[in-house]
Structures are given as structure tokens and as C-alpha cells.
Write a protein that binds this DNA or RNA. Structure first.
Lengths: 238, 238
DNA sequence: GCCTAGGTCCCGTCC
DNA sequence: GGACGGGGCCTAGGC
């Protein structure tokens, strides 16, 4: 189709069958679905229920269209990893093709990055007289989010998470353990909005600490950044 | 709209603005997007590029539609976690509403479950004279996929993964360590299709083992199962 | 190109 | 309902 060559959007509701072969294999029998083919080569297939796509192919892709046994056949190939999506279309109920322009900006707030920014700007969120020394540091066992010093000059590893679960606690222990094993003195603090049951106990047992940060604390700090100013301006536009 | 009350599908290409507030917050400025509202309450918003949705809301949801300042306003509320998606629509380019029937079955192959089935049916994939004793077992540190005995009667923990990465290796070590610490003799084997660099070395250092299974081995075993028979029948239907 | 880590991840499962 | 682990996860960032 010309629509594909000109990198247009193709949207159809159609009676189709789909095969996928790649990291796994799947087969979707005949039925009506929404097929979305985007200008960048992305393909997404939705069933009439469920928030997730049933089949898809991320860009970059190469798309071949042909006719086979009277069915329209669309093959979407991805190179790495090698994956092939085949859509056989028996009939099309609704079809849209055209250029869709969307230059609106997208802002996301309160991810781990924002939490880090807030702590960098206000290390007292960790504790009084706390100083941040490094942002991201390779340690034995992985990479810790922040390294700081408390008011006594004690080195402190800080791991940031939205949810403090066992996995996060073990991760922090993995960073702290080798240092202590080698005789180093170091504190380890897990910072999160919320801690799952058993996590604080595990931290305590292993000589680690935690800080519960509240969302409004972070937001009130982030509020001053340019990023959020743009966000607020966005609200005022309407 | 009646379409929502009657659990129909609503699909539109429209000029809209989107706000999300919940686990995080986001704001998407004015632009043209594909908005998909499904009969089960799912809402998915796609931009004209990228395989992933820019905003979404998984079911169950409650949907409110109203008019505000001349814009069509759609509010999609999720209870737990509490999340709200607001779509302000300035104009609609294309609109489809209707019942979309899709009863086609979906089959997926070669996930971890299939790998386990293959090993349960053919324990020799692990090694000669290997016997599986338990499928899923709680151990200190988590839940191991399989427990078996080698030909010398030695207890063996088996962890299955599609990709053998450091995380998987540490997971296996976490299961084996407490047993060995208490004086127990136990082997630990990580089974995967592919091993990341450094993983085998880590396993070796920690007295653990690995098995590389090839996909065709698993497939040739799964081929005999009823699940795959249905799969093959599916192919024959056309 | 390989690998790690985060995500409004979603989703199933099991306690 | 909470917590954990898998996924064709996808995607961004480091090396």
C-alpha cells in the first residue's frame, strides 16, 4: 500500500488471524481486532477487551503486503531480535489511512529520577547534615543510586525505589556487604515511598536503614524546577 | 454515551489533551491521537509513533463523560490503585463505535512454563538418570522452580529462566546457600536458553552449575502435548 | 551490540 | 488484598 510507503497511519478493524514467531511463538485464531500500523513501523494489534495488545512489533520493522488465497497478508519483520508477525485479513470493517500530526509534549512526574533530583537538592530528606558525594556509583554487586556522608563523615550508600520490596533490600545489602566484609564502615539506606511487609525487619537484621519519603515532600521540591514550571504552564494554557 | 453503557468499542482519532494522576503523574499536551475505549473498561491512547501507548487505564474502571468549556471530557477512574485519566477532546477526526466480536483462541508457546513441562516429561534434559521430586517448592529465600535428585541421590535445586542473567544466578545462590550453611549437601542448576556474560563464571565460583537447553529440544518434546496438538490443528483450519 | 535497571509496567498466582 | 515473579515485556542508558 502507498500508505505504508508514505509512512502514514493505518488503522483498521478487521477479521484476521495472526501468527508470531521470534523469542516465542503465538497464534491467534480468526476474529475481529483493531490493527494499528504506525508511520515509524510500529504495529499493534488489540482485541476488543484488555488493556494490553495481543500481538505487536516494535520499530524498526520492514513491512510486506501481499495477497494469499484471497486473504490480504501483512508480514512485519524485525531484524534484531529476529521476529516475524504475520497478519492474514479476511475482511475489513473499518479502515482509516492518513497522516496524523501530534507534536504535543509529554511530561511525566514522580519517577525515580524525580525522587533523586529532590534528594540532590535537599539532602536533609535523608537526614540532617547529610551530604551527597556521588550520583550513581559502581560498587561490587552493582550500581548504587547515591553515595553520601553523614554528619560524622561516615560513608553512606543510598538506594532509591518507588516501592521498598525485598528485592530492593537485598540489592542494598549486596552493595554494603562487600565493603563491610573488607573491614570498611558504611551505612546503607533504602529510600522509598512505601515499604512492603517484612522489608524493614530484613533491613534492621542486616544493619541497614530506611527512610520513608512522602510524595508531597518530593513534589514540593520538584515544583521549583524548570521542568515542573513548564508543567504548570501547560495547565494554564487551557 | 450509549456506546459505553452498552459496553461497545469506541475508537477515535481526535485532537486531545490528556492528564494522568495516580502512581505517577503525567500530562500530554494538545495533539492528534488514537483513543481506544474497550467494552471491559480498558482505555488505551496511542500517539502516531511508538509501539507503546502513551496513556492507558486497565480495567476495571468507571467512565464519566461530560462537556467542559466546549470540550468533550472523558474521565476514566480506577479504584485500586486510585488513578484517574482525563481526556479533553477538542475535535474528532474519525469515530467508530460498535460491537466487535472476537472469540478466536490465542496460543502462546515456549515460555518458562513450556520449558518446565519439557523437563518434567524428560528429566534427562538436565542430565542422565535425573529425577524430578517436586514442582515448585518454598525454600528459604524464595520459591525454586524444580527440586530433583541426581543419580547419586543428591538433592538438586533447579531454576528455570529464558535468559540466564546475574539476577537469576544470584536467585539460585540465595536458595542453595542457607541449605549449605546448615551443613546440607545440595546442587544448584540454572537452566536457560542463553547465558549472559559473567554468569557462568559466577555460578562456577559459587559451586553452582548450568544447563543450556536449545529451543528445538523443548519444542520437539512439547510437540507431543495436547496443547500443541490444538496449535497444529489451528494451522490446519485455514 | 550486550547488559542492566526502571516502569503508571501488566498479569497471574499464591499466601 | 498484599507480595512475588514472569514477560515476545518495552525503553533508556552505560560500556
Amino acid at each position: 500500500m502507498d500508505a505504508i510507503r508514505s509512512h502514514h497511519l493505518i488503522l483498521m478493524i478487521c477479521d484476521c488471524r495472526v501468527e508470531y514467531e521470534g523469542r516465542a511463538s503465538s497464534k491467534l485464531m480468526w476474529g475481529r481486532r483493531i490493527v494499528l500500523m504506525k508511520g515509524d513501523g510500529s504495529v499493534v494489534i488489540h482485541r476488543p477487551v484488555g488493556v494490553e495488545a495481543v500481538n505487536w512489533q516494535p520499530p524498526p520493522t520492514v513491512i510486506h503486503i501481499s495477497s494469499e488465497d484471497g486473504y490480504l497478508k501483512i508480514v512485519v519483520v524485525r531484524r534484531r531480535p529476529k521476529e516475524v508477525l504475520r497478519i492474514y485479513i479476511r475482511s475489513i470493517d473499518t479502515l482509516y489511512t492518513g497522516k496524523v500530526r501530534d507534536s504535543g509534549e509529554f511530561y511525566m512526574y514522580f519517577d525515580e529520577e524525580d525522587l533523586k533530583k529532590a534528594i540532590l537538592a535537599h539532602p536533609e530528606l535523608i537526614e540532617e547534615n547529610f551530604r551527597i558525594i556521588r550520583d550513581e556509583m559502581e560498587v561490587e554487586g552493582g550500581r548504587v543510586d547515591l553515595v553520601g556522608e553523614d554528619e560524622n563523615g561516615m560513608k553512606t550508600l543510598v538506594e532509591l525505589k518507588k516501592v521498598g520490596n525485598m528485592e530492593a533490600a537485598r540489592q542494598l545489602l549486596r552493595y554494603v556487604s562487600p565493603i563491610r566484609r573488607d573491614g570498611g564502615k558504611v551505612r546503607g539506606i533504602l529510600v522509598a515511598e512505601k515499604f512492603n511487609s517484612g522489608v524493614k525487619k530484613f533491613l534492621k537484621i542486616n544493619g541497614l536503614e530506611w527512610r520513608e519519603v512522602r510524595r508531597h515532600q518530593v513534589l514540593s521540591i520538584i515544583r521549583k524546577s524548570r521542568k515542573l514550571r513548564r508543567f504548570m504552564e501547560g495547565f494554564k494554557v487551557e
